[in-house]
Amino acid sequence: MRLLRQKQAKNQTQLELEIGRPFELDRNAHLGGKSFYFFDFDDNVAYLSTPIVIFHKNTNEEKTISSGEFARENKNIGKTGRFADYFLNFDDIQGSFRHFRDKNFSLLDKIIRKKQVFLQDIEKALETKDYGWKAPSWNCFYHATFNRRPISIITARGHNQDTLIEGINLMVRDGHLPHSPNYLSIYPVSNPDVRIELGDKELKHSVPELKRAAIRESVEKAIQVYGYSPHHRFGMSDDDPKNVELVTEEMKELKRKYSDMSFFVIFTKENSFEKREILIPRKRRSPSTEPKPEQLGLF
């Protein structure tokens, strides 16, 4: 794996990427290739105020933490540090991630047009004046949307896919995006129906495992929809170290399967990002069949 770039943003809300207004063709368009962009959403495309609830082991008292805190501390919850005395409850209705799920609205709720929490949080973010809700991959998300690149949303949230689309459409409505993205796939991987679609029939797989499966399905769909090309490029950005670890493993598997294509993992942080290209060592032989040292296959 090759580290391509580790860059500090000029401010703490966006990546500093040179994005021009004129429509830009894919880098490998002249060769028949396309660039596919896969995005985690929270703390990667946008900072939202959706809280995660943790519970005290002795009193069951609830404490809310942000998704950013959870990404940094989830390995320590219930074990060590300031959240050692707390635990996660995975019940979709009353548990830790209940605000990351759609609610089953009553007829009255629908009549008064009550909105899902995700939509409320998007609108709350859009009301801020400093645009501090734009997370490290926002500029990349805008670039991909503006140039109509195929986009996949692969998020730990458990909403319905239509809810995610409706939320992103609010960004279009307010002029933050020029139009709706060219969606390749949308995987809110904690949604029970999506979990089953990804092969988790017993609903036991972890979020990183589900994201890994979603990446695999998205790559296969890209080839199905846009055709095979050795010049395709795929990149996934995420802010959770555990997710990035399994995303990288899946990208390695995909690189082994589609060795001529290019695969990238972007690890986003609060004010910087690391972009790594996945490279798999290859053994080559000379025409005389004598073995040569193992070397990286560069594409």
Rank of each mutant, 00 (worst) to 15 (best):
P281G: 03
V247E: 10
A214H: 05
S137C: 13
N58K: 15
R101W: 09
G199N: 09
I165M: 12
H231N: 13
E197T: 10
A222W: 00
E294M: 08
R148D: 07
L279K: 11
K201R: 13
N76T: 07
D193G: 04
P281L: 04
D40E: 06
L210P: 05
P181A: 12
S49W: 02
D102E: 02
Q14S: 03
C140N: 14
S49A: 10
S96H: 04
V225K: 14
K211I: 08
A144E: 09
R173N: 15
C140T: 13
V207G: 01
L210Y: 02
Q120L: 06
Q295V: 04
A9P: 00
I112A: 01
I52A: 02
I19R: 04
R113W: 08
S272T: 01
G33H: 03
T268G: 02
G78T: 11
K10D: 09
F36H: 05
G199T: 11
I223C: 10
Q161S: 11
K7A: 09
R5L: 13
P208K: 07
D238Y: 04
L17W: 09
L177V: 11
A214V: 01
N76I: 06
F39L: 01
Y131L: 14
G81C: 03
L4I: 11
H99I: 01
I19T: 11
I151M: 14
V265W: 01
F118Q: 02
F100S: 04
G158R: 12
P291G: 14
N243V: 06
I196Y: 01
D121P: 00
K7R: 12
I112C: 01
E16H: 09
K34E: 13
N271V: 00
